[in-house]
């Protein structure tokens, strides 16, 4: 005997199917469009070492993106990991400091990148007089990704079973040794997935860098020179209006990067799940 479904059930089913179809349709359209239009435009002169107005090379910007990412992470990762260690391993739950830190981290993660950019401009460019500098941009981005690294590290630390800590204490290790030898190594995949997420944000960021690190399309000679990352470079290509094809190609490079980052971080997350 087959149950006859009520019309409402059928309507609900159709609605959720349609919505999912739209979502998937949008994703596929976006990715396929960028790839189809961009790949034919990936020409060798786009990867020449020097940028000129003729080749509109994105190579300097790619190198800048790597430097920028490394620089911001060098600052954000230790601070983020250490503060997560404090929050999970040391602080008493519900203490005033913990509450304040969680509140401010949440605030930081809600601040849009343009506000970060504005702050970086006022602080580094104007108040400190650094002009447009790589360093200013990197610190701005480090603050921006700090909440991501903190949150993922906190979660990773919390996921380490207490028996690990107890075993280590039982063998006579101190708290510090336990944290660095036992707890942190087990939390590495979780921390890494946060770092990778941050790489994605840094590489894709434009608004926070436009008025802090600037738009100069060459590799800076010092960290206090201006230099554009790939996303900023793409914005410039688009706003000048002359380089649509190059912008397509840049979009492909950015998209491929994001895909790689995603694959990497989900692999790590899976590894984390398997372990516990």
């Amino acid at each position: 005997m087959k149950k006859i479904k009520s019309p409402i059930s059928v309507i609900i089913k159709i609605m959720v199917f349609l919505a999912t179809l739209i979502t998937v349709g949008v994703i596929v359209t976006l990715v396929v469009y960028i790839l189809a239009k961009g790949i034919p435009n990936l020409k060798p002169e786009l990867f020449e070492w020097e940028y000129t107005t003729e080749n509109a090379s994105m190579m300097p910007s790619i190198i800048n993106t790597l430097i920028m990412t490394a620089l911001a992470l060098v600052m954000a990762v230790p601070v983020g990991v250490f503060s997560a260690i404090y929050m999970v391993e040391y602080a008493k739950r519900g203490s005033k400091l913990v509450k304040l830190v969680s509140l401010t981290t949440e605030t930081l993660s809600g601040i849009p990148s343009i506000i970060y950019g504005l702050f970086g401009y006022l602080f580094f460019v104007i108040a400190l007089g650094w002009k447009l500098s790589f360093m200013g941009g990197a610190i701005t981005l480090a603050i921006m990704v700090l909440p991501t690294i903190m949150r993922t590290t906190e979660e990773a630390l919390k996921a380490v079973p207490d028996s690990f800590r107890e075993g280590s204490f039982g063998l006579g290790a101190g708290k510090l040794r336990t944290i660095f030898r036992i707890v942190l190594p087990s939390a590495v995949p979780g921390i890494l997935s946060g770092v990778i997420l941050s790489v994605g944000r840094i590489a894709g960021e434009t608004a926070a860098l436009l008025y802090t690190a600037g738009t100069q399309a060459k590799v800076p000679e010092s960290l206090f020179d201006s230099g554009s990352t790939l996303s900023v470079h793409m914005y410039k290509l688009m706003s000048e209006g002359l380089y649509t094809q190059q912008a397509y190609a840049t979009a492909v490079v950015l998209l491929v990067m994001v895909v790689l980052i995603n694959v990497l971080s989900s692999k790590l997350a899976k590894k984390l799940q398997k372990e516990y």
């Binding site: 994703i27 976006l30 590489a203 996303s231 914005y235 998209l255 994001v258 995603n262």
Partner: peptide, 14 residues
């Protein structure tokens, strides 16, 4: 997840 990671400049271009 991919949709979440795409930079806003690429969205703008699209």
């Amino acid at each position: 997840e991919l949709l979440a990671g795409i930079p806003s400049i690429v969205y703008g271009f699209f």
